[in-house]
Computed example of a mutant assay.
Amino acid sequence: MRQLNYLEKLLEGVGTEWQALSDLVTLRRGRVMSKGFLSENTGIFPVYSSQTANDGMIGSIDTYDFDGEYISWTTDGANAGTIFYRKGKFSITNVCGLMKIIDENLLNYKYLYYWLTTEAQKHVYSGMGNPKLMSHQVEKIVVPIPCSDNPKKSLAIQAEIVRILDAFTAMTAELTAELTAELNMRKKQYNYYRDQLLSFEEGDVEWKTLGDLAENLDSKRKPITSGLREAGEIPYYGASGIVDYVKDYIFDGDYLLVSEDGANLLARNTPIAFSISGKTWVNNHAHVLKFETYAERKYVEYYLNSIDLTPYISGAAQPKLNKKNLESINIPNPAPKEKERIVAILDKFDSLTCSIKEGLPREIELRQKQYEYYRDLLLSFPKSHSHEAA
């Protein structure tokens, strides 16, 4: 005999009515607020926009448009369909929508918030390359109302679901914070050991230019205009990594790519030197270097990602690390065995801190997936025949 899941036990056999959001909430949009307006009217009341960082807050002003409990969502752009629970005094911009529950004796705000976090993304329209979730799409979303003929019991069921999901959310956030703190500590530890291992005093080791240590294969790389690329499974690399996948390849083997141009040369948001393997295509935005051994290639990769390359970069408006300057970079060149030792240590740190398949980043991802699994299980209401037909 099949065991009842927690939601079934919670419902105790009562029915679930599915209602369109247009019958449950009123919808409206925010207003245009420029950066100048935000800076000229600084205050204590938050302004929320389409971003997801910082809970969507882009600033704070001295007035507010809304006061109370609401659900907001992002209407336009890459984050379209992102749902937020709002409470208090605040304002939203024109790329946000806002929901106000019509009858709070029928529907719980946090319950609606959790339901929409699983449902809203399914209704995002991505036509013309600009994802959107506008009011006319939102109002069609259906919401399960348990025991709708008994509002008091319905709210009690919704409140219990909210209680469980709030607890899951808090626990997941706490665990993620702990893991993130651990990851940050490991990264600092990694940077410390990397800098220690790659610091050499003048005279301790021989120094050579990068041009002496590696074979430059820039002449073989070739850009392909995006509209002319034939889709395939071969990685197509640019200055900061994979740009596309194509059908053919230029290189086959292990190489070190170094960003030739782009703002990332100065910002260093991602490594400017990275290894590639197998069949690949490389455009003209990354240098291609070949080394005799794995240890030599990885040693140079770690070294280039640890030093300040500003003296070798030209062009303030369009930063560029040209071939001549790249090959003139001085690299400490210890004995092969010492390079192997350094690389072996740094590879272990790198695997723990950077790989999404291993170590702490993977653990953080698993925690989030675990939360989403239990959230979806708790919100898996039985669908009525009329709902399925709709």
Rank of each mutant, 00 (worst) to 15 (best):
S226F: 01
V246F: 03
A170H: 01
H287C: 10
A316K: 10
S199W: 01
L378K: 01
I313K: 09
I224S: 02
I331K: 08
L210S: 12
L38P: 04
I342V: 03
L210V: 12
G56A: 06
T75P: 06
V14K: 15
K247R: 14
K383C: 10
W115C: 15
V162Y: 07
S219N: 14
T172E: 05
Y48L: 03
N333S: 12
G15A: 13
D308P: 11
K187N: 04
T293C: 05
K279E: 14
F274G: 08
Q189H: 06
K320T: 13
Y70S: 04
P271Q: 02
G81M: 07
E12F: 05
G241H: 06
K339V: 01
N264T: 05
D23A: 15
E69Y: 04
Q318M: 14
M171Y: 08
I71T: 10
V282Y: 01
L377H: 00
T74V: 15
K222R: 14
L266K: 15
I141G: 04
Q318F: 08
N184K: 15
S219Y: 10
V25M: 01
E160F: 01
L106H: 06
I364W: 09
G129R: 11
A167P: 02
Y371W: 04
K140P: 00
I83G: 14
Y113H: 07
K298G: 02
E104I: 14
S314A: 11
D67S: 15
S384A: 13
G13E: 08
K337H: 11
Y125G: 00
E174R: 13
L360C: 02
S135N: 14
H287Q: 07
